[in-house]
Design a protein around this nucleic acid. Structure first.
Length: 480
RNA sequence: GGCGACGUAGCCAAGAGGUAAGGCAGGGCUCUGCAAAAGCCCCAUUCGGCGGUUCGAAUCCGCCCGUCGCCUCCA
């Protein structure tokens, strides 16, 4: 079976088939850069990073676009607070966001369009909607008339009548109907503004994603994603605007929504003030552990943030790393003639077969709506079997060694829960200490050997004595 | 109030009709000059509760209890 993806619009997992022969076009709603990114922002970034990596591994070309909402009320407010130009403030936080995501091993998107760079496209779209009768003017604002778009509410499964009944919709006398939403907002004094057919103003929140996704991904685009909190109203409104404007449907083939990150069973968000920033987390935890924590649950499920989960993930990553280190150490021992690989045997054939099976099972897990949790389960299960097979300490035949390493290569390349490259180098000074300890051990000078071992430990180098000689690893993270 | 999701071991979590993956923690053991590190083994007769359908249910249906999200800016 091929790749299947859950579609919010249909509420079901559907076989994935891109619209055209070209690259798979993905548009992900990014952030409003007025503060530092928190773990709730990191989750969709990491999830869509895995989505694109898996699509590529499956042989698709991918065109990934993520926007920045670089002009809105909160940016203006924040800029006023710190007396900074709103555009500069936004650009500063965009830089910090990208830095944090880079650190998490999130590959860069192909484009990061900003609202402020696309005002003319937005104006054109609003004008088009007005011409087609989907929009109306009111005191310099322009609103989308929800009643004109019949399928309104399909994505979020609610009706316009329900929305009115909800009583949580703010009554605004500028709107014909409380469910209508702004396409263009008239400028207030002192705010950044652009000239438009409706006078000076700025884009409403939702229109940017319609305009930019249309420009960069065309219509229909294959996958449009974001956090689950964007389903309504943001994505619902995007559909109304985009389909109203182009006159074609669907605007998006697959809607993918990532579950929220809660803190103490409450949604994490800047407005609630209960955020855990990515940058702060990166000071205490390795990026691989943060990714593993995020990928250990299915992407649609809400997860809870807790440092205990990060500590557990940290241990889990280490288990994987140990297996890789063991394999690489054996490979090196063979290369340097310190050990003889075993001859081909039934046991080793089964090692090769086991590696192939692990790869296949990982693949079908990821094909099943990107079930990274199951894929990780497969990896750990395979790891235990591998460790048992390697328990004797003598290297398996080269083919088995390479097959085993290939599994971890996949874990590293697709899930990114292993460091990009094995840390195979040690500073010369440290290497000298390791060698000095080995010399001391050979002359059975345990006092000296133990002293050097302690010295190294203080510098974050932990030693393991194995039948093939000493092995070292770093252990320097602080765990609060 | 409306709409939706979820409730699986001490914690996290996969599984969605065929008899409970995986990780962390905990316990035991092996290796070792001693340690450390690492590895192996053990750890849910049971899936919020009560009914029902079925040869068979954690998986389907109904009711109940609980938690969370959306309905307003939000990833």
């Amino acid at each position: 079976m091929g790749l299947r993806i859950f579609n919010t619009l249909s509420g079901a997992v559907e076989p994935f088939r891109p619209a055209e022969q070209g690259p798979v076009r993905i548009y992900v709603c990014g952030v409003t850069p007025y503060a530092d990114a928190h773990i709730g922002h990191a989750r969709p970034a990491v999830v869509f990073d895995v989505v694109r990596r898996w699509l590529e591994r499956r042989g698709y070309r991918v065109h990934l676009v993520q926007n920045f909402t670089d002009i809105d009320d909160k940016i203006i407010a924040r800029a006023a607070e710190v007396s900074e130009d709103p555009a500069r403030l936004a650009e500063r936080y965009i830089g910090r966001y990208l830095e944090a995501m880079d650190a998490l091993g999130v590959r860069r998107a192909d484009a990061y369009p900003r609202v402020t760079g696309h005002v003319s496209e937005i104006i054109q779209m609003v004008a088009g909607l007005e011409k087609k009768g989907y929009a109306y003017r009111s005191n310099g604002d322009v609103y989308f008339d929800v009643s004109r778009f019949e399928p309104y509410g399909r994505l979020s499964r609610r009706s316009v009548a329900e929305l009115r009944a909800g009583a949580r919709v703010e009554v605004d006398e500028k709107k014909d109907d409380p469910a209508d939403f702004a396409l263009w907002k008239a400028a207030r004094p002192g705010e950044p503004a652009w000239e438009s057919p409706w006078g000076p103003g700025r884009p409403g929140w939702h229109i940017e994603c319609s305009a930019m996704s249309l420009k960069y991904c065309g219509s229909p685009l294959d996958i449009h994603g974001g956090g689950a909190d964007l389903i309504f109203p943001h994505h619902e409104n995007e559909i109304a605007q985009s389909e109203g404007y182009t006159g074609t449907s669907p605007f998006v083939r697959w809607w993918m929504h990532v579950g929220l990150v809660n803190l103490h069973a409450e949604k994490m968000s800047k407005s609630l003030g209960n955020v855990v920033e990515v940058a702060a987390l990166l000071r205490s935890y390795r990026p691989e552990a943060i990714r593993l924590y995020l990928l250990n649950a299915h992407y649609r499920r809400p997860i809870d943030f807790d440092t205990a989960h990060l500590r557990a993930a940290e241990q889990a990553v280490e288990r994987l790393e140990n297996a890789v280190a063991r394999l690489e150490h054996l490979r090196e021992a063979v290369a340097r003639g310190l050990a003889q690989p075993a001859r081909e045997s039934a046991d080793n054939d089964s090692l090769v077969a086991g590696a192939r099976r692990a790869l296949e099972r990982m693949s079908s897990a990821l094909d099943d709506d990107f079930n990274t949790a199951e894929a990780l389960g497969v990896v750990f299960e395979w790891t235990r079997g591998l460790n048992t097979a390697l328990a004797g300490g003598s290297p398996p035949p080269t083919a088995a060694l390479e097959a085993a390493l290939e599994v971890y290569g996949e874990v590293r390349d697709v899930l990114g829960v292993l460091p990009p490259e094995a840390e195979t180098s040690l500073e010369p000074e440290m290497r000298a200490l390791v060698e000095a300890r080995e010399a001391a051990r050979r002359r059975r000078d345990w006092t000296t050997a133990d002293r050097i071992r302690d010295q190294l430990a203080e510098r974050g180098i932990v030693l393991e004595d194995t039948p093939q000689g000493v092995r070292w690893k770093r252990r320097e993270r602080v765990r609060p």
